[in-house]
Simulated assay, not measured.
Amino acid sequence: MKKCFIYSIALGFIWCFVSGNISPGNFLIGTILGYLLLRPLRVLYDFEARDSLVVRLQQIPKQIKYFSKLIVEIIKASIAVAKIIIQPNIDIKPGIISVPISAKTNVGITAIANTITLTPGTLTIDVSDDRSTLYVHCIDIDDSDKVRDSIREELEEYVLEAFE
């Protein structure tokens, strides 16, 4: 509960800066809205976890590395999709593949699924009931093992490092 309140205060500050009105009343509104936003998300993020500030600060370089890798992957995938679109005869083999994942937390699974979806040409469709497999639609699958390995080695590794 204490962490949820602290995050609400941080969202209150963000609200002030985004709205362009830095005042006590606006801060209070932002804090209340932040708390109301965080309440339903309690099941996704464990506010009762005993993570120290040092652990959180140590994750920042890993998260920067993840976001850098994500940007590179988005650019590479965008170029690949653009090549497919520009071709006079579109010869693609769309399909759905299953990708086993190592993430165990809700945040890790959500981060991997969203990372896949943000990458052009791929879309996370579902998570298995046991939360060990993602089902991913790909615009072009020449070799499903290659695509699966690419997701596991190039994306999941960075997500696990940054968020779990």
Rank of each mutant, 00 (worst) to 15 (best):
G12T: 04
W15T: 06
L11W: 05
S128V: 05
A82I: 03
E73R: 10
F163A: 01
S102R: 06
N26I: 05
P61F: 00
Q87G: 13
G12P: 08
D140P: 14
L53A: 06
Y7C: 09
L41Y: 10
I92H: 00
G95A: 01
S19A: 15
N89F: 08
D142W: 13
K62Q: 10
E156A: 08
S132Q: 11
I71Y: 12
E156T: 13
F67V: 06
I29H: 13
A103Y: 00
D149F: 14
R148I: 11
I74R: 00
M1F: 03
R39P: 15
K76F: 02
V136N: 14
I112K: 06
Q87E: 12
C138W: 00
R42C: 10
H137K: 08
K2I: 14
S8D: 04
K62D: 09
I86M: 12
L123W: 14
K83A: 07
N106I: 08
K93D: 09
Y158V: 12
S78P: 05
I139L: 03
Q58P: 10
L11H: 15
A103G: 02
C138H: 04
L134C: 00
Y7G: 07
I116M: 02
T115M: 05
E48T: 11
L155A: 09
I9N: 03
A82Q: 10
I141R: 06
V72A: 10
G121P: 01
K93C: 09
D130S: 03
V72Q: 08
I64Y: 05
H137M: 03
V54K: 04
I90A: 13
I97T: 02
F17D: 12
L57A: 11
V72Y: 06
V43H: 13
V43E: 13
I32D: 06
P61W: 03
A162G: 03
N106S: 03
D145H: 07
S19M: 09
A162D: 00
V147M: 01
P24D: 10
S150G: 15
N114R: 02
I96M: 01
D51A: 02
K76L: 04
I14Q: 13
S132M: 08
S68G: 15
L134M: 02
L53P: 00
P40T: 05
I74Q: 06
S102G: 13
Y66T: 06
D91N: 11
Y35T: 12
E157A: 09
L70I: 03
F47P: 00
T119A: 10
A80K: 05
G95H: 01
P88G: 03
T133N: 11
G20P: 02
T119N: 02
I84L: 13
I9V: 08
E154G: 07
Y135N: 12
D51G: 10
F27I: 13
I97P: 00
A49S: 11
L70F: 11
G12F: 07
T119F: 12
L11M: 07
I90Q: 12
I109E: 08
L57T: 02
Q63H: 08
E157H: 15
F27S: 07
D140Y: 01
R56S: 07
L123Y: 02
S150A: 05
I6H: 12
L134K: 01
E73D: 12
T122F: 08
S19Y: 15
I9H: 10
D143R: 04
G30M: 11
T115I: 04
Q59V: 15
E156L: 11
G121A: 00
K104G: 15
K69N: 14
I32P: 15
F27R: 04
C4D: 09
V127N: 11
I75H: 00
